[in-house]
Amino acid sequence: MKHPLARPKWALPESSLLSTITREELSARIGRNVDALAGDWTGAVNERALEILGPEDAAAVARAVFLRFTESEGRKLFAGCDVAAVEFPHLYVLRSAHQDEASATRSFPDGVLGDADNAFQCPADVTGTVLVVRGVADVDRLMAEGVPAGTIGVVHDAGGTMTAPILPEFAAVLCLAGTVRSHLAIISREFGVPCLMDVQLARPLVDGDHITIQCTAKAQNVDAYFGDEFEPRALITPAAGDAGGAAGAA
């Protein structure tokens, strides 16, 4: 049988190597299987779906993709959730761990640690002590022990669930990803917990850093995502009298 989708007249390249490799491996596997089938596509597409691509085929595609990807990129796949990296350490590394190593690539003027989009405008800036919350285990511990007073939580997740049981206890939250329409921003606004999204830094923030975040900045303009002008980003600075925080002292 001829595969009717084997050769499009034209195509746009995928936006990632992983997508390209996956498409190539899938096409090759599906093409071989379809070639081996008798009859026509109309009769086969549903009735013989698992012969066109069965579970074993998919597993083989996944293995081939992983091999090519790791050979080319020199790393495992990124995982967003903790349990993926825990259960499948041979496949995954947490994206957040990689970001920790790769972050702090922007330069800022002296006295500025970074900037971010403000989720909502507050009447006063917030000064507090950084606590980096890396995952579910950290949240579990903080649920039991409580979040120390004056803590500014630093999280990778733009989602609203990881910090769900403890979010209202933070003096403020800094998120290293996302936009002001992310779930974390939505929930922070509802709780009135000051929140900066898409934080970019001159250096990674570490536990114990004493910082001030400019929550009095204007909230980021959501229409900027559709082409309007962005509002100036909120600044993150060392707290007054702090010589550079925990990282500086170290």
Binding site: L5, P8, A11, L12, P13, E14, S15, S16, L18, S19, T22, R23, L26, A58, A59, V61, A62, V65, L77, F78, A79, G80, C81, A84, L91, Y92, R95
Partner: peptide, 22 residues
Amino acid sequence: PIFNEEYALDAYVDHFVAMRGE
């Protein structure tokens, strides 16, 4: 097995945001 954590994100962006691919 194909839609692992990283590819699922890339595929979503390609299909429903950037509209790339075949």
